[in-house]
Computed example of a mutant assay.
Amino acid sequence: MSEVIKQLDVSIMGREFRVACPENEEATLLQAVQLLDGRMNDIRNHGKVIGLEKIAIMAALNMTHEFLQTKVEGGIDIASFQRRIGNMNSTIDAVLNEQPELF
């Protein structure tokens, strides 16, 4: 069985991008877009870095550094757990929506 791939239009720092993602990962992708957009706007607003490309590189470098510290210090892959928890929540919601009133 193949995964359904969706095309999503997202906005990062006022620029529109079309990205593909598996249908079941749309929410996670939108969270990533929101996080990246916020980080890039923070860098731009502090006025130390000029130019979209440099801002993107600095945001990527900062986020990658945080990710590596989390993985090394915590010994677990938090992003993987967040995805798994999100998938479990979606499954639970789907099952509950199929049920008549439970209480």
Rank of each mutant, 00 (worst) to 15 (best):
Q69N: 14
A27C: 06
V49N: 00
H65D: 14
M58K: 04
R18F: 03
E98L: 14
E66F: 00
F17Q: 04
G38L: 02
Q34W: 05
E26V: 15
D77Q: 09
E16P: 00
Q7K: 14
E23A: 15
G74Y: 02
T70A: 12
I78S: 10
M1E: 12
M13P: 04
V95K: 10
H65S: 10
V49T: 05
G38P: 07
S11L: 10
S90I: 06
R15H: 10
P22N: 07
N41H: 11
L96C: 06
N45A: 07
V95F: 09
G38F: 03
E16D: 11
V33Q: 08
E25P: 04
P100I: 04
Q82L: 15
Q82F: 14
T64G: 11
D77Y: 06
A94L: 07
D42W: 00
L30N: 07
I85Q: 08
E53S: 11
K48Y: 03
F103T: 08
I12N: 05
S11G: 01
N87T: 13
I5L: 11
N41C: 01
I85G: 03
E53Y: 01
L8H: 08
S11W: 06
L36S: 01
D42Q: 08
A60M: 03
E98V: 03
N87A: 15
D37G: 04
A94R: 11
N41Q: 14
V33K: 09
I85T: 11
L35R: 11
E101W: 03
R15K: 15
G86C: 07
V4C: 01
R18M: 08
F81H: 13
I85W: 04
T28Y: 15
M13N: 06
Q69K: 12
G86N: 15
N45T: 03
S2I: 05
N97C: 07
K6D: 05
A59V: 00
Q31P: 02
K48E: 09
V10Q: 08
M63L: 11
E26I: 12
Q7Y: 06
L68C: 10
A79G: 11
Q82S: 09
I5Y: 09
P100Y: 07
M58P: 01
R83Y: 10
V49D: 00
I76T: 15
S90E: 10
K48T: 05
Q99R: 12
E3G: 03
E16T: 11
E53K: 14
N24D: 15
F17G: 00
G75M: 03
E26K: 12
D9C: 03
E98W: 02
S2V: 07
N87H: 14
F81Q: 11
F103I: 04
L61F: 03
P100E: 10
Q69D: 14
H65C: 01
N87Q: 14
V4P: 00
Q69Y: 04
P22C: 10
L36I: 13
K71H: 11
L61H: 06
N87D: 13
T91R: 12
Q7T: 13
A94C: 04
E98S: 13
L36R: 05
S11I: 13
H65T: 07
C21F: 13
M40E: 08
D37Y: 05
F103K: 09
I57A: 08
I57T: 09
S2K: 09
D42M: 00
S2E: 13
L96K: 10
G47L: 01
V72I: 05
Q82R: 15
K71E: 10
E53W: 01
D42K: 00
D77A: 08
N89W: 06
A27K: 15
N97S: 12
A60G: 09
N87S: 15
I57N: 01
